[in-house]
Amino acid sequence: MAYRIGTRGSALATTQTQWVVDAMSTDHTAFEQVIITTQGDVTTGSLANLGGTGVFATALRQAVIDGQVDMAVHSLKDLPAKQPPELRIAAIPERADVRDALCASNGMTLDTLPPGARIGTGSPRRVGQLLALRPDLELVDIRGNVHTRLARVAGYEHHHDNAPSAKGSPKGDLDAVVLACAGLDRLKLQWAITERIDPVQMLPAPGQGSLAVEVSALKALDAPLATALADHEDLGARLEASAERGLLETLEAGCAAPLGGLARYHNGHLTLDAIVTAMDGSSTIRRASSTTIDVEAITEATLEAASALGVEVANMLIADGADLLPAGPARGAR
């Protein structure tokens, strides 16, 4: 049986999708990548102003709904928390490194960056947390694929002379950029990372480091595909995703401030740590909670318990004034 699997066309997206394809392919089940162009791939300007997470997911989701592809592979942090009734997240594989990566000139770290250093990121979440840590930094809004962003770092530009880049994108004009460790690891660009930022300092986006395989509600009943997807599911990653998406969905209803959130599942214990910040880093609210979910298989009840933890932490943040913090141009947890 052959299935069509939709993906964005970036090097990172196709690499991630190929990893899923390789893991699920068997002697009886094969997968073909189909490139889908999303709004985020063709539109210029700030990602936050384009609408945040959904800018990379809508076209892929529509392709699944329309039957153009049988499933789609997303970076989980690109998916809006509200799940369309026509679609199911059928598998969340084992999670990669959840941390943010500093890629800086001369091996610099957050502590050793000089005052006034110019740091590139397209994420309001990263902007707010970086400025809370280092209000002396200059944050520069950037777009483009991973190679284009790395080429903005002084000393890195010649590593990417032959890589695809945004037309007219400058090179070597920044002291550092911040990207996701997971993407750099999957592209075998670990050499560019000068610091894997501890979540104690900077919490990642909800879903960061995780992939999501999304199918239509009808296709979820396809027995060979359901078996392949079930074998690709990671219990801990699914519970962590449910908690983080419960947090995200609750806060999206009434809080536009940049959000970071990280759930961790270990030996039946699920914890969730979350932060919201003002865009200028002047105010932060951070709260955490935990629950016991000792299970060997995913059920609706366990997913609801994980999601309830996300709702609990979100309500703690709102009670402490998260909805009153100055917001960015749009919700953007990336």
Rank of each mutant, 00 (worst) to 15 (best):
residue 109 T to R: 05
residue 56 F to L: 15
residue 64 V to P: 00
residue 332 G to Q: 03
residue 102 L to E: 01
residue 56 F to P: 03
residue 320 D to F: 07
residue 125 R to M: 09
residue 134 R to M: 06
residue 207 G to M: 06
residue 79 L to H: 03
residue 289 S to T: 13
residue 17 T to L: 11
residue 252 E to I: 02
residue 102 L to N: 04
residue 89 I to E: 05
residue 308 A to C: 10
residue 254 G to H: 03
residue 30 A to P: 04
residue 311 V to W: 01
residue 74 H to V: 13
residue 185 D to M: 10
residue 72 A to K: 04
residue 309 L to T: 07
residue 180 A to K: 02
residue 100 D to M: 11
residue 57 A to Y: 01
residue 239 L to V: 08
residue 126 R to F: 01
residue 155 G to P: 08
residue 273 D to G: 09
residue 100 D to K: 09
residue 277 T to C: 00
residue 47 L to F: 04
residue 13 A to D: 13
residue 277 T to W: 00
residue 224 P to K: 08
residue 43 T to R: 13
residue 26 T to A: 12
residue 212 A to P: 06
residue 147 H to V: 06
residue 249 E to D: 13
residue 316 M to H: 10
residue 59 A to T: 06
residue 317 L to M: 11
residue 106 N to K: 10
residue 72 A to G: 15
residue 131 L to R: 00
residue 306 A to M: 05
residue 192 A to Q: 02
residue 103 C to F: 02
residue 321 G to T: 07
residue 305 A to H: 06
residue 317 L to Y: 04
residue 43 T to G: 06
residue 234 D to C: 14
residue 1 M to K: 13
residue 289 S to H: 14
residue 73 V to R: 04
residue 85 P to A: 06
residue 2 A to F: 08
residue 124 P to D: 05
residue 287 R to E: 15
residue 12 L to F: 08
residue 233 E to H: 10
residue 35 I to L: 14
residue 310 G to Y: 01
residue 227 T to Y: 04
residue 188 K to V: 08
residue 239 L to C: 10
residue 35 I to W: 04
residue 157 E to C: 10
residue 135 P to F: 11
